[in-house]
């Protein structure tokens, strides 16, 4: 515990981060999975998921966050989101045309409804969250290097 305090912010910030990070991540998952029922959607949910990891990085320092979510995993999620979105769109050709809602529409106002829209939301959130976290990591790493040089 004492060794962990070497990097990052004070112990108050770390404790609050430990309590709130899971809640923020869960809220992001709620926003993205209920995108077809309530306001929100893939983009906002993905950004909230990315913000929870940004919070972890700000509070605990670069090493802890990158150990939990390495750069390879980030780029994998980004590419997986893009490919998932495109393949959902291409699967519409089984019924006729691009972006066809080929799944069962289901009962309205239920979580499992609206065909491909929740799947598209999940794909977009993977892409957006991983992409914005990658941008943040890249800018922070550049900043640390330039500080080291000066």
């Amino acid at each position: 515990m004492i060794r962990e305090q070497d990097k990052g912010m004070s112990v108050i910030v770390k404790t609050v981060t430990r309590f709130t990070m899971g809640l923020i991540l869960l809220y992001g998952i709620y926003i993205l999975s209920h995108g077809h029922l309530s306001p929100g959607g893939g983009f906002a949910g993905g950004v909230i998921v990315a913000l929870s990891f940004v919070l972890l990085m700000l509070a605990y320092g670069k090493e802890t966050a990158l150990k939990k979510f390495p750069k390879g995993v980030v780029s994998f999620f980004e590419n997986a989101g893009a490919i998932m979105f495109l393949s959902i769109a291409l699967l519409g050709f089984t019924g006729g045309y691009f972006f066809l809602n080929f799944l069962d529409k289901g009962e309205p106002y239920k979580l499992f409804s609206a065909g491909i829209i929740p799947l598209c939301n999940i794909a977009i959130s993977l892409k957006v969250g991983a992409g914005l976290f990658a941008i943040f990591v890249a800018l922070v790493l550049v900043k640390l290097e330039s500080e080291k040089k000066v």
Binding site: L37, K105, I117, C120
Partner: peptide
């Protein structure tokens, strides 16, 4: 037509999915 209760979501991901792509 889409089964989505949120009209914004149905426009974004069904009617206008090309824009989202």
């Amino acid at each position: 037509q889409t089964g989505a209760a949120n009209v914004v979501s149905s426009v974004m991901l069904d009617f206008r999915a090309y824009d989202t792509l």
